[in-house]
Nucleic acid binder design. Structure first.
Length: 532
RNA sequence: CGCGGAGUAGAGCAGUGGUAGCUCAUCAGGCCCAUAACCUGGAGGUCGCAGCGUUCAAAUCCUGCCUCCGCAACCA
């Protein structure tokens, strides 16, 4: 694994043509968890998300809403911020492609590429649907030459466009793939890129349009606006101040080889991130990202969540009812990161109950109760491994921490969190092995009992810390109950046996109350509009 | 032959060459500190079908087929 101590991580910038749904929340939450995890472990981390605000669709939707495009996106982006606040997203910056810090630099980038010969002016030829004002490819219009959007016939049309030359960089890209096998994860995505797009012959990329005006105008030829990808992808560097008066963040979090750069993205935009983005960067003479992680899609009951099917899940009411931590936990734990997953109310309830209520929450509750009962609420002093059981749970804990860190560094978040579950399960088992209620009846076993209590408290502390990037509120509630002072809620303390000695516990409310599936499953289904 | 996934216990999923695993549900037992929770054990799978494929060894690799899904067209 890399040992870089600085870290730059991004989500895609989402398109504000409509409200966000749980799929966007999934991607952003996972990215947030990685960012928080790195920060917690002492890395200097910069986390970016944002909005991709240009394009014909925005122009059209704004017109339909009787607003200017800028007014329109302002309203939608307001909703982005609300959702990210609800989800406790800890982004350091939020880039909007309509901001001057972005538009000006994109124009500069265009000029630079034009001057070094990577961009040329030509004609884009394709099937055009006049009512939809859209170009379509051969496969899209099919044999009947019908607009896939409105079903009306399309005509051959030409439009003057600027193109980015890909041929110049394609060999370098393939070489880059070979030299950096971890660049694109999962690996099957790389094969897909090579076999589907590169081997058949990669065409030049059209990067301007004249058919609409809601975009960044090209200085050299203002009837053109820059078309989507050169505009959108560059957000990752304009947000850091590339090409601005103050490029210090750009130097620190992008150009510095000591900084690890990771993009998290969805499968549908892999092609642009994995093929064109490295080319753009090479054209500009800049370093490429270390890794691009393609996450899976969240499906709904075996079919894709989509606006037209009306089966979109809005995360906000889920958060309102179950708390942000339950939703974050579900997203990170339930879906194997990298493959597609499906959202189901039953799974949501089960996951909350099994891992959070039964295992961890109950463990905390029974431990604090016993410390109250047997030691007047004070965590006994750590006295090493009093019985072999203590040694076992200590080595088990050390194993969990090690595996968790390795898995997290490898972006295997599902497996990393499963390690924490193993620890809380192991601690529950340790209670049965040591039978504290029996030890309590025998005064000569006082030391054993004390040691059991200490080890339980320590296990819970470790679980709380390892879960902290996910359970942003509940971890602190765990630490509250264990009596750990704010300044001692430090990651490195999880390896410091003895750090909890003498703390006064505070029994609080149930960490995660058990959910009643008979009530909650119908409730969630109702949210999804399936009971209507 | 457009591209890419998936098919493993009743349900939902891990598992890419070496004695089939996890969660839930179910059955039996234990415990009583705890959130009808926790712990132990059982039952339940010829790992989509075929090849008598490759191999000392296949859920895992190869070949063919079947079924489902996603992308290509709003949508991470």
């Amino acid at each position: 694994m890399t040992n870089k101590k600085r870290f730059y991580i991004t989500t895609p910038i989402y398109y504000p043509s409509a409200r966000l749904h749980i799929g966007h929340a999934y991607c952003t939450t996972l990215t947030d968890i990685f960012a928080r995890s790195k920060r917690l472990r002492g890395y200097e981390c910069y986390f970016l998300t944002g909005a991709d605000e240009h394009g014909q669709k925005i122009e059209k939707n704004a017109k339909a809403a009787g607003k200017t495009p800028q007014e329109f996106v302002d309203g939608i982006v307001e909703g982005f911020h609300k959702l990210w606040n609800l989800l406790e997203i800890s982004n350091d910056d939020f880039i909007r492609t309509t901001q001057e810090r972005h538009t000006k630099v994109v124009q500069d980038i265009f000029t630079k590429m034009l001057n070094n010969g990577d961009i040329y002016l030509d004609k884009y030829k394709g099937w055009y649907c006049t009512p939809c004002e859209s170009f379509w490819t051969d496969t899209q219009v099919g044999e009947d030459h019908i607009c896939p959007d409105c079903g009306r016939p399309v005509q051959v049309a030409e439009e003057e466009s600027y193109f980015f030359k890909t041929g110049k960089y394609v060999d370098d890209l393939l070489k880059f793939y070979d030299e950096n096998p971890k660049f694109l994860i999962p690996e099957s995505r790389k094969n897909e890129m090579v076999n589907t797009f590169i081997k058949p012959g990669l065409g030049d990329l059209c990067i301007s349009r004249t058919s609409f005006s809601w975009g960044i105008p090209i200085r050299e030829n203002p009837k053109h606006v820059i078309y989507v990808w050169l505009d959108a992808l560059t957000n990752y560097i304009t947000a850091l101040g590339y090409g601005s008066d103050d490029p210090s963040k750009f130097e620190k979090f992008w150009q510095d080889p000591e900084c690890e750069v990771i993009h998290i993205l969805g499968a549908d935009i892999t092609r642009f991130h994995a093929i064109y983005w490295p080319m753009f960067l090479q054209s500009l003479g800049l370093r490429r990202p270390d890794r691009e992680f393609v996450h899976g899609l969240l499906m709904m009951r075996d079919s894709k969540m989509s606006k037209s099917k009306g089966n979109v899940v809005d995360p906000a009411p889920l958060i309102e009812r179950y708390g942000v931590d339950a939703v974050r936990y579900y997203l990170a734990r339930e879906i194997n990161f990298g493959s597609d997953g499906s959202f189901s109310p039953e799974q949501f309830v089960e996951r909350c109950n099994t891992d959070l209520a039964n295992s961890l929450g109950n463990l905390l509750n029974r431990t604090v109760s016993m410390i109250n009962k047997y030691f007047d609420g004070v965590i006994p002093e750590y006295k090493g491994k009093v019985t072999p059981f203590d040694g076992e749970i200590e080595s088990f804990t050390a194993m969990v921490i090690k595996n968790y860190e390795d898995l997290m560094d490898d972006l295997k978040i599902t497996d990393a969190l499963a390690m924490v579950n193993e620890l809380s399960n192991r601690a529950n088992k340790y209670i049965d092995e040591t039978t504290p209620w029996a030890l309590a009846k025998d005064e000569s076993k006082k030391d054993e009992l004390a040691s059991v209590m200490y080890h339980l408290a320590m296990s819970i502390f470790v679980c709380g810390m390892l879960f902290k990037p996910v359970l942003v509120k509940s971890s602190d509630r765990i630490f509250d109950q264990l009596g750990i002072a704010e300044e001692n809620r430090v990651y490195d303390k999880i390896n410091e046996y003895g750090c909890l000695s003498g703390l006064k516990v505070n029994k609080g409310d149930q960490l995660f109350p058990r959910l009643d599936a008979n009530i909650e499953v119908p409730f969630i289904k109702d949210l999804m509009g399936e009971n209507k």
